[in-house]
């Protein structure tokens, strides 16, 4: 008895079915809902009954005075995070790699990637506490040095940098582990040969270690390009206030305030689609480049 190929494979389809249903409803459903971006959506009329307005929402979006600043903030914060997110972990990994005592190396690793697993609600609560201009420990330390208290979370000159530094605090340990894992893959005989040739530790780092992890650096750098419009909603939402909208309001927080707080559904969806579309191009492009040049495949 031989069943046809289709019937033999049917159990596999059945396994996928429940998960597929959830993805179709909760991921593809909202994609269909994107037509709202081209409508004047009224909750009472629903998606089918709302008036079609074409690109009018985009005209409104790009005439809105804050739009330009918000896009600028998003890209500015995201690019700084991407650069810091490459430089700091690579440096930390190279330095950790020189630590010969396993116990110390392991303890340091354990300590630096703990914040990665805590949410921005927890870390936001902690940052608000320590950065407070009146009672925060950071400012009481600064004032002991004779520096005037700095309103880190309420001053537009400081806010974007607080975002970048605190993002490094949360994520650099995690990324460091990725680079360290790549470092252990380097053939030890290369170092032995270099020592025979009289290469110093610095020369070894320059000519063996760095080239050894270059593929993974390139890979992570390329993939991070997909994040140019992701300045980190969770973080910004938990740290910002109206005082720092000028320097800290990003696309995602703006969409949230417009769409859910002010009920400007179509307006917010239009901005959301703008972001999703550009991000899609960037992410797909990044994966394509990673595939072409690093032979990286996600599945």
């Amino acid at each position: 008895m031989r069943l046809s190929k289709f019937w033999r494979q049917l159990p596999l389809d059945l396994m996928i079915l429940p998960g597929l249903a959830f993805v179709l409803i909760f991921s593809y459903g909202p994609m269909a809902g994107l037509v709202m971006a081209f409508q004047n959506y009224k909750p009472t009329k629903g998606i089918l009954g709302s008036e079609w307005v074409g690109l009018d929402n985009y005209v409104t979006v790009f005439q809105y005075p804050d739009t330009k600043q918000m896009i600028y903030n998003t890209v500015f914060i995201a690019v700084m995070k991407i650069v810091a997110g490459l430089v700091v972990p690579i440096t930390a990994a190279l330095l950790l790699n020189e630590v010969r005592r396993r116990g110390i190396k392991r303890s340091i690793q354990t300590m630096i990637y703990l914040p990665h697993f805590l949410s921005w609600v927890i870390l936001g609560g902690i940052l608000i506490e320590i950065l407070s201009p009146s009672t925060g420990i950071v400012n009481s330390f600064l004032s002991s040095l004779g520096i005037e208290p700095i309103y880190f979370l309420g001053d537009n000159r400081w806010f974007p940098y607080v975002l970048v530094i605190s993002d490094v605090w949360k994520e650099f340990g995690f990324a460091t582990i990725v680079y360290l894992a790549a470092l252990t893959g380097i053939n030890p005989s290369l170092y032995e040969a270099a020592v025979v040739d009289g290469a110093s530790r610095w020369k070894q780092t320059l000519h063996i270690t760095l080239p050894g992890i270059r593929p993974i650096i390139v890979l992570l750098a390329v993939l991070s390009l997909g994040n140019i419009l992701n300045a980190g909603f969770d973080q910004v939402f938990n740290l910002y206030s109206p005082q720092v909208y000028q320097s800290g309001d990003i696309i995602d927080t703006f969409v949230y305030r417009m769409g859910l707080a002010n009920a400007q559904y179509s307006f917010a969806t239009a901005i959301g689609l703008f972001k999703s579309a550009i991000s899609f191009v960037l992410i797909s492009g990044a994966y394509y480049l990673a595939y072409r040049f690093a032979n990286y495949r996600i599945f």
Binding site: M31, G33, L34, L273, S276
Partner: peptide, 16 residues
């Protein structure tokens, strides 16, 4: 995989 690369965004997600 496509559901990871592209999303409908916050508002349509909420509506669904």
């Amino acid at each position: 995989v496509f559901s990871m690369l592209f999303s409908g965004g916050l508002i349509p997600w909420y509506m669904v």
